[in-house]
Structure formats: structure tokens, C-alpha cells
Design a protein around this nucleic acid. Structure first.
Lengths: 291, 291
DNA sequence: AAAACTATGTATAATATTTTTCAATAAGCA
DNA sequence: TGCTTATTGAAAAATATTATACATAGTTTT
């Protein structure tokens, strides 16, 4: 009798089952049988499925405390939303001891949500195809980024250089990129990062590179860089956080996942290179021995 | 081409994302953001939520291969029915359409867990203190990273340079860092990144810098760099992922959160600097106008 | 710089949905 | 049985939803 708002439709039906009539029982059965999907269509569909008239459906909605059938559907959608959108507790406190409003928690919330949303939009098949492209050491790979994303590009480049030969990092903001384009051949790959405040130079680079037959793989944001139209594969990532700047966390995540995939693909050849590199580092005594 | 019926709406959106227009992107975002509930109401509700007109919604439904919006909704309901009645859908899959064992999902799992573990270990108070240190423009700030972490250091540096003066990036791997140490004064701050395969140079840099009275803020991994003993504040981050390399995702996350905190602290002064920078970029026409 | 094209929203027409009315039927009761 | 009341659905009215036509703004091409 108390808070009607918080009760689910299923609960309301079960509570009031005794007060329901013959035709309404029939209807209730159908609703519960395939809950909640069966009640998400039109009143007509539901009525037909229950072999009941549409007014019966409307009347029952009223009887259960809703203002009408549409109100019942809205409640049902909200119910579903609450059920579905909460596989991992959304409002889990990350940094314990800090209030929910602390920047750490707000940032963590945003970063997590960005990751989830971004992953929803990534086509695993495209991911695999890009990994395959980058695993083919026959073709050269060029990497380019913008003002902010250049560091991510560099990160990608540094690791890829260990994995394979034929890697080229296109300098940031400089006007030397035409030299790189000159060297590109049919089948080479250009990996570009272009996040909002899309850069003109990058668009032109994408144009010229694809004109020369290079395949463009583009990392961009949810709105999409204009260079996307030249790209064979595009990754649209969520980048918004409670800050004056955009976040590169998800971009870096995808870069790392891609590195892992490529490395797995090419493990035969990579192994030797990695081991050789380790040896080099040992010789230069750059690192402390790791315990 | 093949069996259109079996493709989910989400898949269709991903596949055709390139062919979608600006308004349609907006719409697609909303649909995917709270999938599939957001598209289960009326076309009007969905249009309003996406800040798009109803015809845009109807047009996109067509574009995605449905006969109209109602057809799309029916498909969505069938999808939902299939999902809900399928008891397997317990464990959240990040990249839908890819198996749990796909590197994307394994990587996402690991990254998420890293973030959670790392945040548990971060002292919010220490975080605030570091933010305060970095907000004080009286003292200079030096940033140093290692072979891999150098790019993260650079990322941090690039953003901090917009926020405040007195920022210095110590070159990677070079032997020029003694020059930087010479310039350090009592109260200056050294932000160092040292992840396993801890680097000797970095340890020595930390020693000398703190000897000169600088305050060391250290980003390291869960095992802890040897430089930690010289540090005033240490952030221990989880970095393990299913890959031959360590992940820098969480490190970048914390860096960004710190940037946001510092930027909030110094908004009075930062504002002018950011605006001046925007103006500079506008003048150089480096960027396309953002709509 | 003008022309051609594309994208998008407003207004409106077409369509579907929901509710109301009311007559028919069934059920309860003296 | 016959009277009363409750339940139900057909049909129509009221309302909401969806699609179309068209004008405008924006973009690209020439």
C-alpha cells in the first residue's frame, strides 16, 4: 500500500492477482510469461497475444495503479533500465575515504564509463583486422599524432619498434611529413590519432597518404575526425572527463590492447627481437637487475 | 548481403557508423549509451533525448536497413527477448560480439581491475597534497620518466605547461639531467615515473634532486621503485595486463586526475593562459573550426 | 565566389495507438 | 426463472506516434 512507485509491475500483478478477472488473468499470464518483453510492444500486440481486447489491457493498467497503458510501459522501461545497466555496481566508491565528490572518484567514474561506452562501439572484427594489418611486416607502418595525442602515438611507436621493423614515427607539428608520404607505398599503413580540435595537417596527411595507396587506421573521438572518411578502420573513443581537457586513457587502453594482439600474432619473430633487446639493455646496464 | 535478421541493432550501428551523419552520430551515441532501453520508447522521446528531430530518427532506422522506426523497435524487442531468456549473459562482456576470451575483453577486465586495485591504494590526502604542491607556481617543477614512461611524463608536462610556468621536462635517456639538477632549488618539485625494470639513472637523479632540497613525487608500480625511499609522496599503481608489457593506462589515469585537480586549484591564473593559448591556435589556423 | 549538393529541422499529413462508449454476454443471486 | 450486476469486446472517438514534404542552413565542389 505504501510506495507504489518503487514496486515493479510483476510485483503489482502478483499482489493484486486475486482482484483480477478472468480475462485479466489471461493477460497477466502472458505478461509474466516473457517478462518484461511481452509488455514492451503496443497495447494491440499485447491484447492479441493474450487473446483479450485492448480495453481489457488498458483497464488492467489502471487497476494496477497506473494512469494508463503508456504509463505502465514507461515504468516497465525504467525497471528494465535499472536491471540492465547495473552489472558492475555503478556507484561503487573507488578511493575509499574520499567523498563521492572528490575528483578522484568523479574521474574514476568518468574513465570507467568512457571505457565501457568505447568498448561497446568497437567492432571486434575491425580490431582483429587492424591487428593483422600491423602484424604484416611486409608493409611499413607510419604513426602520426596531434598536439596532445603525439605522446600516445609515440608510446605506440616505441612498443611497435620492439615488435617489428619498418616502423616510422611522423614528427609532431612539423612540416616534414611530406617526406614521409613520399616513402609510402601501396599497402603501407598509416596509424593516426586525431581527437577533437581536429588538426588540419592531419587531415591533409590522411588525404595524401591514402592517395598514395596507404591504408589509414584512425583513432578518434566519439564525434569523429574529418579524416575518418579516408580511413579503412576507425576507432571512436569516449574522451570526456570532468576536466578542462579530454582524456587519453581509453585511447591508451586500446593502443595497448592492440599491441598485445599484434605481439601475439607475431610471437615467432617478436621473441627473438625482444630477447635481443633485453640483452642490449643488460649490456648497457641501463636498468637495475630486477628481483 | 547476408542474414540481416541476425544482426543486432548495435552491430548495425557500428558497421554503418561511417555512413552516418553528424545528427545521426548524436543519435547513435544515445542509443548505445543506454542500450537497448533508450530506443524502446517512442520516436519522439528518443529524438528529444538525442537533441535531434524525429525525421532524423526515422531516416536512420531506414539507413540501418529497417522499413521504419517501428520495425526497428520490433527487432530490438526480439533482441532483448533473446538476450534476457539466455542465462549465459551473466558476466559482462565489454566488447559485444567477441568471445570472453578475446584479447579486448581480457584486456578490459585486467585494466579495470588494475584501476580498482590502484585506487584502493591511493591516499586521497596524499593526492590532494601533491596537487597543492604542483599548484604552487613559486616553485619550479621538473618531470622525468624512463624508457617507456617517458611518454607519460611528456603528456603530463605538455598539459602542465598550459597550466603554469616553471615546468621542465628532463630529457629521456640522455645524460643531460645533471644540468637540470644544478638549477633545482629548495622547495622545487621533481615528478618522476619509474615502473619496473627500474632505471639506474632515475634512482641517481632522485638522490641528487632530493639532496638539493627538491621534493620528489614518484609514480611507480605495486612493487615500488628503489627511488621510493627518497620520495615525499609515492603512488603505487597496478600495471599487469595479459601482454608481454606492462600497462600505463592507470598511470595515465592518475596523471589526468592530478591535472584536473591542479587545474581546478589554479583556475584563476590558468584561465587566462588557456584562453591566450586558444587564441594562438586560432591565429595559426592549426585546427579546423569545431562545430 | 557561386552553384550544387547534403543534411537537418519545422510543419503537417498519414498512420497507429489508446481510450471511451456502449451493447452484448456471462455470472451471481433471490 | 428472472432480475441485477459485472465483465467483456466491437466500434468509434480521442490522442499519440510516425512519416512526408519542403524550406533552410551548412558544406563541398566548380
Amino acid at each position: 500500500m505504501s510506495n507504489k512507485r518503487s514496486r515493479t509491475l510483476a510485483e503489482r500483478i502478483r499482489e493484486n492477482f486475486d482482484e483480477l478477472t478472468r480475462a485479466e488473468h489471461q493477460l497477466a499470464d502472458i505478461i509474466l510469461e516473457n517478462y518484461p518483453v511481452s509488455a514492451m510492444g503496443s497495447i494491440t500486440i499485447l491484447a492479441n497475444a493474450s487473446r483479450v481486447s485492448t480495453p481489457t489491457v488498458a483497464r488492467m493498467a489502471r487497476k494496477l495503479g497506473f494512469s494508463g497503458f503508456p504509463a505502465m510501459q514507461i515504468a516497465l522501461r525504467e525497471e528494465l533500465e535499472a536491471t540492465i545497466s547495473n552489472p558492475i555496481a555503478k556507484h561503487e566508491r573507488f578511493a575509499e575515504g574520499a567523498p563521492d565528490t572528490h575528483i578522484l572518484n568523479r574521474f574514476a567514474d568518468a574513465a570507467l564509463e568512457n571505457m565501457r561506452q568505447s568498448l561497446k562501439r568497437i567492432d571486434p572484427d575491425a580490431f582483429d583486422k587492424v591487428a593483422a594489418l600491423l602484424s604484416n611486416s611486409e608493409s611499413d607502418v607510419y604513426v602520426a599524432g596531434g598536439r596532445i595525442t603525439h605522446t600516445i602515438a609515440q608510446y605506440f611507436f616505441t612498443h611497435m619498434q620492439v615488435i617489428r621493423k619498418g616502423m616510422n614515427l611522423i614528427d609532431a607539428g612539423s612540416s616534414t611529413w611530406p617526406h614521409f608520404v613520399l616513402n609510402m607505398n601501396e599497402g603501407d599503413v598509416l596509424v593516426a590519432f586525431d581527437i577533437r580540435r581536429y588538426e588540419r595537417d592531419l587531415l591533409r596527411l590522411a588525404e595524401m597518404a591514402t592517395a598514395r595507396g596507404a591504408t589509414l587506421v584512425l583513432f578518434t573521438d566519439q564525434w569523429g575526425s574529418p579524416a575518418a572518411r579516408h580511413a579503412r578502420h576507425v576507432f571512436n573513443l569516449r574522451i570526456e572527463v570532468p576536466s578542462a581537457w579530454d582524456s587519453s586513457v581509453v585511447t591508451l587502453f586500446l593502443v595497448e590492447a592492440l599491441l598485445a594482439a599484434v605481439q601475439t600474432n607475431t610471437w615467432g619473430e617478436t621473441r627473438d627481437r625482444v630477447e635481443a633487446l633485453e640483452e642490449l639493455f643488460d649490456k648497457t646496464k641501463l636498468f637495475r637487475k630486477f628481483s
